[in-house]
Amino acid sequence: MNSIFVNSKDVFLDIVNAKDYIQLDRVSTIYQALKNSIKKPLKMILLYGKPGTGKSMFLNKLHKDLSSSQKVYLYQTPILDESEFYKTLAQDLFETKYSGELNFTQFMKIVKSQDNEEIPVVLLDEAQLYSEVLMEKIRLLSDTRTVKFVITLHKTEKEDIIAKEHFQTRIWETIELENASSGELKIYIQKKLMKANCFDSANMFTNKSVNKIHKITNGNYRDTNKLLYTLFDLYAAYERNQQLSSVKTDQVSNKLIEMSAIHTGLIHA
């Protein structure tokens, strides 16, 4: 059985894959800005935002787009060990294999020996997991302007103030990713569904129902994914039980939205 609801459900699996990237006006402005500043001799670019605002997605997309035209490397998991970090960079960026320990001074030598006609771009996700010591070295490294770093920082409410303080000093170029507005959320949902050829379910999302969803998820992409995954799971279950006639299908049923929100814990009942 190939239910449209089952297909639509899978659209909202929480997976970060550049090919699923949705172009949103605000995001693409930031994206363009980021691409431009990568060309500039600025040192480090900091991308931050609350959980689920699309930082990893953004970085993946950037990696995919840039890789055809320049040297760009994405590290989704922080490399904890300092020596391992330098070794990995030396190997990936400068094709220099190194067995045994590699320290900062040695690595700097390798970096400086390069005739840098093209500055490699290193993308580091989850940068808050790097140790303080290593982060400082990364900063020193980017000061040499021989490697450019784009790092993402996961920001929680608590860290908000720190992020803002940091924002003001402007040592780095900083970009904040935010939750979607209601209008953006509609585009996000519909484009996502249409990409998977789920046109009928895309049409179910009227302004009213998107507003309802936005109220529950605050426009957070991850929470929206979770909610809609459950929503279509519910629709599929009603369909299996042949109870589809008891719920709205021409547009998303408010009742089912609320039930999904209860199930996912986005509203407490």
Binding site: E132, M135, E136, L153, I162, E165
Partner: peptide, 9 residues
Amino acid sequence: EVKKISIKR
């Protein structure tokens, strides 16, 4: 500044 950020690390 970098240290400030790393408080939460």
